[in-house]
């Protein structure tokens, strides 16, 4: 990323930092931007998985597992912080599970398997009424506790969850950046680009794929856990919604695959355009930007998907 990119990112970060007082702690706008930040986190974690060459069409599964895991733990009396951490662990385990099960699938077929996986969890949440509350979901999730040691401006109203989402996004981006520079990133890229060659050089693909899934599932699950504590309900069609699968894919490919900040920037941009500009005026069409962005990426961004598509062997296993 060039110097311009960093300056842009710095400006966006500064703007995000001073947004709550600027909007007068407006609850709706803060909720909206918090959600955008969480989408940015899920998009970044999707991108982390794509960096290892694994394309997911089912991040809703990890987000939803995190959401339900955290909600159940929180309703069971655990502190919300512990509950969210547990949600992240549930997301990581769920992601590692599908990765292990579909070890022999690649490319489009892995993508289809993850799509089915997310639908299966949505079905389970709908039907396993005793645990999940069925279609009605679970209500009465406690709010996030106020961190009394922080200055009041950081905790007022919805500002608390807003700054938490922002901090979480920054942490996930930092972790991704660290991975890019480490041997983990080296292995991810090798597995993505040429799995057989990587194996010949001593990199066994499967553990790295599972690690990439688990990390991605962890961050998405944490985001899910945070989200249900923000909205304080959890329903199958809320957290296992297909949009949590589509949107990260759109944001990451539109923002720039394998880039550090692109997916988060695209998440903020697309989500806010959709919710602030389109939703009030043409509610039925407010998801149009995502559809168009996706189509544009495939057709008009040469190389936009190039990183997704390692060589010509990526079809069937």
């Amino acid at each position: 990323m060039g110097r311009r990119g960093w300056i842009g990112a710095g400006l966006v970060a500064a703007a995000l930092l001073v947004l709550p007082p600027l909007t007068g702690f407006h609850p709706y706008y803060l909720y909206l931007v918090s959600t955008a930040l969480l989408f940015g986190t899920v998009a970044t974690s999707w991108n982390l998985l794509a960096y290892a060459g694994q394309i997911s069409f089912g991040h809703a599964a990890f987000f939803g597992l995190g959401g339900y895991g955290a909600a159940l733990a929180s309703l069971g009396g655990l502190s919300p912080w512990v509950a969210i951490a547990l949600g992240g662990a549930v997301g990581a385990v769920g992601a590692a599970g599908i990765s292990l099960a579909s070890a022999r699938l690649r490319g489009a077929y892995l993508a289809l398997a993850t799509l089915a996986y997310a639908e299966i969890w949505r079905g389970i949440a709908h039907n396993w009424t005793a645990v999940s509350g069925g279609g009605a979901g679970l209500i009465g999730i406690p709010p996030l506790p106020t961190l009394a040691w922080l200055p009041v401006d950081f905790t007022r109203g919805r500002a608390g969850s807003y700054y938490l989402s922002l901090a979480f996004l920054v942490v996930v981006i930092a972790v991704f950046g660290g991975i890019l520079r480490s041997r983990v990133g080296l292995a991810f890229a090798a597995v993505r680009e040429e799995e057989e060659r990587a194996s010949l050089l001593g990199v066994r693909a499967l553990p790295w794929k599972v690690l990439a899934f688990a990390l991605s599932g962890l961050f998405s699950g944490l985001a899910g856990g945070l989200y249900v504590h923000m909205v304080r309900v959890v329903e199958p069609d809320l957290v296992f919604n297909r949009y949590f699968s589509i949107l990260p894919l759109v944001m990451a490919t539109f923002g720039g695959l394998h880039t550090l900040l692109g997916p988060a920037m695209a998440a903020l941009g697309l989500y806010l355009v959709s919710e602030l500009l389109l939703h009030p005026y043409v509610p039925a069409f407010h998801q149009l930007p995502y559809a168009l962005a996706l189509i544009a990426v495939v057709l008009y961004l040469p190389g936009g998907l190039a990183g997704l598509l390692p060589g010509k062997r990526s079809g069937a296993a």
Binding site: R183, A189, E194, V203
Partner: peptide, 25 residues
């Protein structure tokens, strides 16, 4: 081994291509 038709990690740098084997042997 080498391949007759080169199969490097196409989108990685030349340096990283060589670093993989050194790191994971």
């Amino acid at each position: 081994r080498t391949f007759q038709i080169a199969r490097p990690f196409a989108h990685s740098t030349v340096f990283d291509n060589v670093l993989v084997g050194i790191t994971f042997r």
